[in-house]
Every structure is written in structure tokens, then in C-alpha cells.
Nucleic acid binder design. Structure first.
Length: 673
DNA sequence: CGTCCTTTAAACAGTG
DNA sequence: GCACTGTTTAAAGGAC
């Protein structure tokens, strides 16, 4: 492309740095195991009998894990094993390796898929989010481990002063605990699987005894908790902690994420930042919020996020009051919790299915990509599957720009989830494929919104026209008007794709602004701003409606419930005929809340999520789904843009992007570590 | 095949 | 003179 000769590319040479965050986490996670044995912080009062007991339990646990793993590998082989690395002994898969399983896609494959858009962005987004969740768990585990080390060392110091405990007993104890940690790591992956398979059926708050059985195979949460307390709390070692509540807690949260993160939730206030997949039970909340008041998953933006509640709570204290009064452990809460559990369960199921599908698609495409004729950009790859740093080094040949590293512009302030970036997906390729024409459907807010996180990070060309994007940018603004530069900024902020080749797309933006009558230039005090003439915009809408049926389907379904996650899920649901969604979840805001909660937690920063009203704009889906309905069956509400999208606008920690006229030159460095 | 639409590229003018 | 903004033209490609 010739755009490099444009004036705006002059300084791009040095600006773009390679992303560094993604791989390091994996590496750290991987190295955690090796480091682990170094911990020499001894500990406390656990007698040797207890120790023996613990070790016995561990042996049992390991055996059970192995069994479970084998079972899962057999039964779920369709899901993940197709591309499993065979030299990796199944029994020893550390979590860092196991977690790579979803990423076994080669960058080539990923790229091709992205370019061809055979996957709906929603599906990819779901995948990304799931990966983010996993990575977050890793991080939490790390933090947890560090904390544990610190505490153990503290206790060592104390005990050395007290002359209480001989050192010999401490080392094996530490070792035992480290083994526990190791197992916890190893269990993360399989636990996810087990969630998918067993899910929340086991989570019955009213029946604490029942749920433990399947989960305990992997976790033994009570024992773990007990062990922790024994090890860490010398002064409370005598106490028995395995009461009903604790088992309920552990069970509940084991469902939500994983044992390690749950443990950290309970015991390590620093480790619980996000619980994306959490099912929030009252009990758990009461535990976690005490120590982590700023990240209560049920509280955000002054609103109680208990499914279906949305009560306004000015501050956190009032929220706690509200939570304890309105959502106490009663029948109603329990029922709601069950519903939520089912929702999550379905989500997990769906995730599993989508993952399987993705895997199959990847496999399929990989075969094709090796064919001689294909491979439009055979060198347009990144080198590492694991989102490693080296990915950025393999710059696409036909794109002289150093690849930008969209290292999680999503959540600059929450490094955790952002680990999963699309570093491995960057570079759309030298040749702009005109696949977007297939989707030359004027977008609605929801369309952009549902994929925003995806496009924010993946350098994939959004399948929306410039006009649609410009309109979206303008409508999203508070005053429904933007200067040209602000439009530029919106593009770069919302789409990783537009962080390069600025001369080209900026020219296109200007061209579109001038060309389309729907964009009205308004002289302002401080210059000129651009606004949208919706009538004009609507006039040009009934265009060809063709293209990917699934995409359209996604669009359709998403409009009703707006949140991106919802959209993807619903689309997939529909395809997979999962009944619960259409009945239990769709009808009430539960799923919407869940989805937005998940999104929020992943985003790290967010504004209100009015998933109820936001941008459903039901009048749009017929148009977009190909039904040539009359253009203005519904007065187009400019407010619609303030739904999910505004949510993302604030996801960037720096709302002021006026500086990013040089965005192309300095892309998203802010969130690099 | 023609038309419409979109994208890309480029030239040009006005302005600060 | 330069950068930015805004307009306009042209060409190409895809969809209908």
C-alpha cells in the first residue's frame, strides 16, 4: 500500500514498541513451579500427624486428579485434544501449559481466520475473555503464592523469636503446601473442563453437602482451606474451620472460577481483583467485600448488581446494608442464585461448544492454509502461539510499520485480564481484503458495541463502513458532535486496526465526511464539528444485505439484549438450541446482568451498563437482517449510542485521547508494564 | 452489464 | 512553508 508515503507516517519508525506483557505472564506462571521449591519460609504449628494427614490427602488427591484428567481427556477429547501437543505428558501438564491449549492455534491460522472472518467476532471475543479469565486466575495464584510466602516468612520470624518450632518440621510443611499450590495450578485447566461438564449443577446453596462431591475431586477445598489456616494462622490453628459455611463458600466459588482464586479471595485480599466468571452468592460476597471493598462484584457505579436488583446505593456501606437486608440468605436469594448458576452453567456449556467449534475451524483452516495456492499473506504471521513477545518481532513484510502491540487497550488499569491480548493476531495483512464489503451493513451501536473489545485489541478490520463508524463515533459523543480530530481519536481508540496507516484511513474519514450528506459540518465557536443527520443516514441504509449469515444472526440477536457477550451467546445458543437461554435468561435481566458484569470485570473500568434499555433498537434488526422494511419504522434514537459503547469509552483509563494524533506513532504504550 | 456503494488515492484550496 | 481540514475527482472492486 502506498499510504506509507503519507505525511503521517514520517515518524513511525521508532514509536511502536513491542508488547511485552502477554508472554511474560505465561512464562511467569510456568516458572512458578520451578521457583516454588525455593521457598524456605517455614511455618507453624501443624503437628507431624497433621502433616502426615495432609500428605496422605495429597496423595489421594493427586490420584483423583489423574483419574479425572484422564477421564476428561478421553471424554472431552473432541474439545481440546485435536491439537494437543503429544509430547506433553497428560499427567504433568502444568497449568501454564494446559492453559495454552486454547491457544494452540498458530498465528497463521488465527490470522487467516480473522481476516476471513469466518469466526464471528463475538465468538472470538468470548474466547478472548475466557482466556483472560484464565490468565487472571494465574495471576491471582501467583499473588496468592507470594502472599503465602510472605506470611510464612513472617511466621517464621515470629516463631524464631518464640523458639517455638523446630525447623525440620517446617520445611516439609512448606513443601506440602507448595505441592498444594502446584496442584491447584494444575487443576485450573481441568477444573474449567469440569465446570463445563458438571458446572453449577453441583452448586446448591441449600444443600452444601451435595455439591462438594464432584468438585472435591479436584479441589478438596475445605481441606485446602483448612490447610491454609493451619499453616498460616498459628494462633488459630486449633480452630476447626470446616463448617458448613466454609464449604459452601468454597463450593460456590469453585464453580465460579477456580480453587486458587477462591482461596485468594478468602484469604488474600490482594489476590481477588476480578472474578469474571463468578457466581456471586451472598455468602461469598460477605466474605470478599470485607477485605476488598472496592471490587465487589455485586456493586458498581452506585448500583447493586444483584441480578434483577439494580438498587441504588450511594456508597459501599449502604450497599452492604442493602446486600445484607435485601439479598440475605433466604429462599428468594437462593432461587436467584440458582438461576444465576444455571446461567453460568449454560455459559460454560456454550463456551465449551464454541471452543470446540473454534478448534475444529482452526484445524480445518490450518489444513487449507498450507495449501500452496491460498495463503494470501503467508509471511504475515507472528511467531508464537502463546502471545509471546516474539510475536511482534515477526513483522509482516508488506506492512512496513512495526506491528503495533495492542497490549490490552481494554483495561490499562487492570493488567490482569489484559494479559490476553491479540498480539498474536495483529496485522491484518498487507492486502486489504474486501471482505468487509460483504458486511456493508450500516452498523448500529450494538453492532459495534458487541465487538468493541475485540476490535479494540485485534488489528482486524472492522466490518463496518467508514460512514457507519463515523456516525457511531459522533453519536457516542455526549453532544452528538465531534471534531475531525476527535473522530480520528475515536477510531484509534476503538479499533486497533486504525492505529496504523493513519494517512489512509484518515483520508477516508475525511472523504466520507464530505461525501455523505448524512454528515453535517457545523461551525462552532472553536472551529467546526461534525454531526449526523440521521434522516440522511437512514436513507442510505437499505443497501445490500448479504454476507455472513451468522454475523447477521449475531447482529440480530444481539440487538435485543445488547451486551456483546449476550449477542454472541445468544447467537450460539440459538444455533445450539439451548433452551434455557430462551426461557430462563432471556426473559429476565439475569443473563444481561451477568454478561455485563463479566464484561465490566474484564474491562476493569466501566461506566453504567444499561443493558436493559441501552441500544436494543429493535427496529434495526429487521433492516439488518435483510428484511427490507421501510426505513424509518422507528424514530432513530440517538441515545442508543449511549448504551454499551459508552461503557467502553471509559474503559480507557485516559479518557483524554486528544494527544493521540500521534497515536499511530505511539500506540497504546500506556498499558504496557 | 450497469448501477450503486465503498474504499483508496490524490489533488487542491483554505486556514492557522 | 507546513500541518491540518475539507472538498473533489478518479479508479477499483464488490454486490445486486
Amino acid at each position: 500500500m502506498m499510504q506509507e508515503s503519507g505525511p503521517e507516517t514520517k515518524s513511525n519508525g521508532s514509536a511502536i514498541q513491542n508488547g511485552s506483557s502477554s508472554s511474560s505472564h505465561l512464562l511467569e506462571c510456568g516458572s512458578l513451579r520451578e521457583v516454588r521449591s525455593n521457598g524456605e519460609a517455614p511455618a507453624s504449628d501443624v503437628g507431624s500427624a497433621d502433616l502426615a494427614h495432609v500428605q496422605q490427602q495429597q496423595a489421594l488427591q493427586v490420584a483423583r486428579q489423574l483419574l479425572l484428567q484422564q477421564q476428561q481427556q478421553q471424554q472431552v477429547s473432541g474439545l481440546k485434544s485435536p491439537k494437543r501437543n503429544d509430547k506433553q505428558p497428560a499427567l504433568q501438564v502444568p497449568v501454564s501449559v494446559a492453559m495454552m491449549t486454547p491457544q494452540v492455534i498458530t498465528p497463521q491460522q488465527m490470522q487467516q481466520i480473522l481476516q476471513q472472518q469466518v469466526l464471528s467476532p463475538q465468538q472470538l471475543q468470548v474466547l478472548l475473555q475466557q482466556q483472560q479469565a484464565l490468565m487472571l486466575q494465574q495471576q491471582q495464584l501467583q499473588e496468592f503464592y507470594k502472599k503465602q510466602q510472605e506470611q510464612l516468612q513472617l511466621q517464621l520470624l515470629q516463631q524464631q523469636h518464640a523458639g517455638k518450632q523446630p525447623k525440620e518440621q517446617v520445611a516439609p510443611q512448606q513443601l506440602a503446601f507448595q505441592q498444594q499450590l502446584l496442584q491447584m495450578q494444575q487443576l485450573q485447566q481441568q477444573h474449567l473442563l469440569s465446570l463445563q461438564r458438571q458446572g453449577l449443577l453441583t452448586l446448591q446453596p441449600g444443600q452444601p453437602s451435595l455439591p462438594l462431591q464432584p468438585l472435591a475431586q479436584g479441589m478438596i477445598p475445605t481441606e485446602l482451606q483448612q490447610l491454609w489456616k493451619e499453616v498460616t494462622s498459628a494462633h488459630t490453628a486449633e480452630e476447626t474451620t470446616g463448617n458448613n459455611h466454609s464449604s459452601l463458600d468454597l463450593t460456590t466459588t469453585c464453580v465460579s472460577s477456580s480453587a486458587p482464586s477462591k482461596t485468594s479471595l478468602i484469604m488474600n485480599p490482594h489476590a481477588s481483583t476480578n472474578g469474571q466468571l463468578s457466581v456471586h452468592t451472598p455468602k461469598r460476597e460477605s466474605l470478599s467485600h470485607e477485605e476488598h471493598p472496592h471490587s465487589h462484584p455485586l456493586y458498581g457505579h452506585g448500583v447493586c448488581k444483584w441480578p434483577g436488583c439494580e438498587a441504588v446505593c450511594e456508597d459501599f456501606q449502604s450497599f452492604l446494608k442493602h446486600l445484607n437486608s435485601e439479598h440475605a440468605l433466604d429462599d428468594r436469594s437462593t432461587a436467584q442464585c440458582r438461576v444465576q448458576m444455571q446461567v453460568v452453567q449454560q455459559l460454560e456449556l456454550q463456551l465449551a461448544k464454541d471452543k470446540e467449534r473454534l478448534q475444529a475451524m482452526m484445524t480445518h483452516l490450518h489444513v487449507k492454509s498450507t495449501e500452496p495456492k491460498a495463503a494470501p499473506q503467508p509471511l504475515n504471521l507472528v511467531s508464537s502461539v502463546t502471545l509471546s513477545k516474539s510475536a511482534s518481532e515477526a513483522s509482516p513484510q508488506s506492512l512496513p510499520h512495526t506491528p503495533t502491540t495492542p497490549t490490552a487497550p481494554i483495561t490499562p488499569n487492570t493488567q490482569g485480564p489484559s494479559v490476553i491480548t491479540t498480539t498474536s493476531m495483529h496485522t491484518v495483512g498487507p492486502i486489504r481484503r474486501r471482505y468487509s464489503d460483504k458486511y456493508n451493513v450500516p452498523i448500529s451501536s450494538a453492532d459495534i458495541a458487541q465487538n468493541q473489545e475485540f476490535y479494540k485489541n485485534a488489528e482486524v478490520r472492522p466490518p463496518f463502513t467508514y460512514a457507519s463508524l463515523i456516525r457511531q463515533a459522533i453519536l457516542e459523543s455526549p453532544e452528538k458532535q465531534l471534531t475531525l480530530n476527535e473522530i480520528y481519536n475515536w477510531f484509534t481508540r476503538m479499533f486497533a486496526y486504525f492505529r496504523r496507516n493513519a494517512a489512509t484511513w484518515k483520508n477516508a474519514v475525511r472523504h466520507n465526511l464530505s461525501l455523505h450528506k448524512c454528515f453535517v459540518r457545523v461551525e462552532n465557536v472553536k472551529g467546526a464539528v461534525w454531526t449526523v443527520d440521521e434522516v440522511e443516514f437512514q436513507k442510505r441504509r437499505p443497501q445490500k444485505i448479504s454476507g455472513n449469515p451468522s454475523l447477521i444472526k449475531n447482529m440480530q440477536s444481539s440487538h435485543a439484549y445488547c451486551t456483546p457477550l449476550n449477542a454472541a451467546l445468544q447467537a450460539s445458543m440459538a444455533e445450539n438450541s439451548i433452551p434455557l437461554y430462551t426461557t430462563a435468561s432471556m426473559g429476565n435481566p439475569t443473563l444481561g446482568n451477568l454478561a455485563s458484569t463479566m464484561r465490566e470485570e474484564l474491562n476493569g473500568a466501566m461506566e453504567h451498563t444499561n443493558s436493559n434499555e441501552s441500544d436494543s433498537s429493535p427496529g434495526r434488526s429487521p433492516v439488518q437482517s435483510g428484511h427490507p422494511v421501510h426505513v424509518k419504522e422507528e424514530p432513530l434514537d440517538p441515545e442508543e449510542a449511549e448504551g454499551p459503547l459508552s461503557l467502553v469509552t471509559t474503559a480507557n483509563h485516559s479518557p483524554d485521547f486528544d494527544h493521540d494524533r500521534d497515536y499511530e506513532d505511539e500506540p497504546v504504550n500506556e498499558d504496557m508494564e
